[in-house]
Design a protein around this nucleic acid. Structure first.
Lengths: 160, 160
DNA sequence: GACAGAACGTCTGTCGCGCAGAACATCTGC
DNA sequence: GCAGATGTTCTGCGCGACAGACGTTCTGTC
């Protein structure tokens, strides 16, 4: 309970797990749990240009996305529409019901987030979220699909 | 690539996944990958008082810890010793070889961490890690085993 | 226009891991 | 001495990541 407190991996894991738990509890019976929420968010606000683009954004395997969308579609929250420009791809769009559901969820999720962040003051919370946002943006830009090879090279070069 | 950027869950997930990938790449063939490293760290520096305490700290299931330790023990990096005070429990201690291996790993891990944090300036990096540390400490204190019930109550009360 | 190659989505199989439950050894309180 | 609690291990289940194969569709070349 001492050395680990300083470990970046450990601290990040603790917070991440806490958020996932809180989020899953908050979304209740939404198909797909916390990932279902993210899919719904992306479908409503980001107009994902394809199913696989969505996978990449969310870090979800494409084979999982298939039945994740199946479940959400069965619940009438999103719909798969064939893309007019490329009939191989399917556009994922939220239904009216999905959008309505998302509004409710946003409220609940805000509380889940606040629950996890309750250890920080108001100002620190914003600072933290801001830094995290910048970090995620950077990570996502340089490495949308983290190439282990590059990392290994990088590390090997540094550590040798 | 726009709305999600603001989602706390998404940003945290992106950074977490990136770190896990980088860490796994950095530890190479260490049994247990990034979790093996954390076990080794705890065993070396934290003197975990029992196997299950270790599970709780690391957020690992106890059934997984069993064969995680099996693998590390087979590699002569840690050892299970019967606790003198309670023969039900096993103390997890690092071997000399384990401690030596940990020193090498720390170097490599520092580079992996730097890789993930490379989007922030030196100062911001420290700020971020400091806030994260406080957050993890708080989360861990109030909710070592996150009780979904409490969270649900909390959220239900807040969102209604 | 025909064809090779690539991309998208789906399906199958495998593996790691979290979770629930049971079994066993051991400890604690009565 | 005995009932109940606790630590560890094992088994079975389900979810999800990953790799590979397949059908459909698009693109570039001849």
């Amino acid at each position: 309970m001492t050395a680990l407190e300083d470990d970046f991996g450990w601290t990040l894991g603790v917070v991440f797990r806490a958020l996932v738990k809180a989020t899953n509890a908050a979304v209740g019976d939404l198909p797909g749990g916390h990932r279902g929420y993210q899919v719904l968010t992306a479908a409503t606000r980001d107009q994902p240009e394809s199913q696989s683009a969505l996978c990449q954004q969310l870090g979800v395997d494409r084979t999982v996305m298939t039945y994740l969308l199946d479940d959400l579609e069965r619940a009438s929250l999103v719909a798969r529409k064939p893309a007019p420009t490329d009939r191989r791809t399917r556009l994922v769009v939220a239904t009216d019901e999905g959008r309505k559901r998302l509004e409710e969820l946003d409220l609940r999720l805000a509380h889940a987030e606040a629950h996890v962040l309750s250890g920080l003051s108001e100002g620190d919370r914003e600072t933290f979220k801001g830094l995290l946002r910048r970090l995620a943006g950077h990570v996502n830009d340089q490495d949308p699909v983290p190439s282990a090879c590059a990392v290994v090279q990088d590390i090997a070069a540094g550590a040798s």
